[in-house]
Computed example of a mutant assay.
Amino acid sequence: MSPGPDFVIVLRSAVVSGRRAGMACAAGIASGVFAWAVVTALGIAGLLAASAVAFTVVKLVGAAYLVLLGVRALLAARRGEGYEPPDTSGAGARTADAAFRQGLLTNLLNPKVAVFFIALLPQFVPANASVLDHVLLAAVAATVSLVWFIVLVNLVSALRRILTAVRVRRIVDAVMGTLLVGLGIRIAVTQ
């Protein structure tokens, strides 16, 4: 629930592309949470955290991805791109697919999520836990994440009329772009 890359990307998707894209982005993040929880249960995330090289690669790729998304938002704010109402000719499906991928990649490329699950998951799983126990815990984590982001998307959707005014939209893109670039840089330089 704390504001981070996932929060920013869901917020931006919901403001820029609407409720459907926001929901798709939330589903992508929940899928990433589920994947990280499963990978942690299998011990693979521990290997990532233990390998300085692998951890650094994931960290830098994730940081670069956030910076790329931030730069795109900043360029859109500067140019005022795409501020017309979206068409209804089926382009929404492509937007939802792109939002899902953005959410998934943002979550999977964030090494802090792996560290979070490595620190948290073992506390809730008994030593003799079955595969089903691990999958159930992963599903709970993904569901909690999905529910939180659905609440966020619905709140943004309720305010969307205000948030899509051209002037407000440019400010939102500039702020979100700056936050994404800042988060990317912060992740890149964090030890």
Rank of each mutant, 00 (worst) to 15 (best):
D173L: 00
A49H: 11
A27H: 03
A30R: 01
K112C: 15
W36F: 13
L42R: 04
A27Y: 02
A37F: 04
Y83H: 09
I150C: 11
P3C: 13
I185A: 09
A98E: 07
A30V: 08
V38A: 04
W148M: 14
V53Y: 12
V39L: 13
A93L: 12
M176Y: 09
K59T: 11
P85L: 09
P122E: 12
D133L: 03
A49E: 09
P111H: 07
R101F: 08
G43F: 05
L120F: 15
A93N: 05
T106V: 06
R19Y: 15
G80R: 04
P3T: 12
T95V: 13
L180C: 04
L75A: 14
R101T: 08
L136S: 11
L146K: 08
M176P: 02
L69Y: 01
I162E: 12
A76N: 08
L180F: 02
G177Y: 00
I9P: 02
A93C: 05
F116Q: 02
D87V: 11
G80N: 06
T164H: 05
V71Y: 06
I44W: 08
T95K: 11
R160H: 12
A165C: 09
M23C: 11
L69T: 01
A50K: 15
T95L: 08
V67N: 07
I150M: 13
V38P: 05
I150L: 14
S2K: 15
M23A: 08
K112I: 14
A142Q: 05
D6T: 14
L60R: 09
G92A: 11
V115H: 04
A73Q: 07
D173G: 04
M1E: 13
Q102E: 03
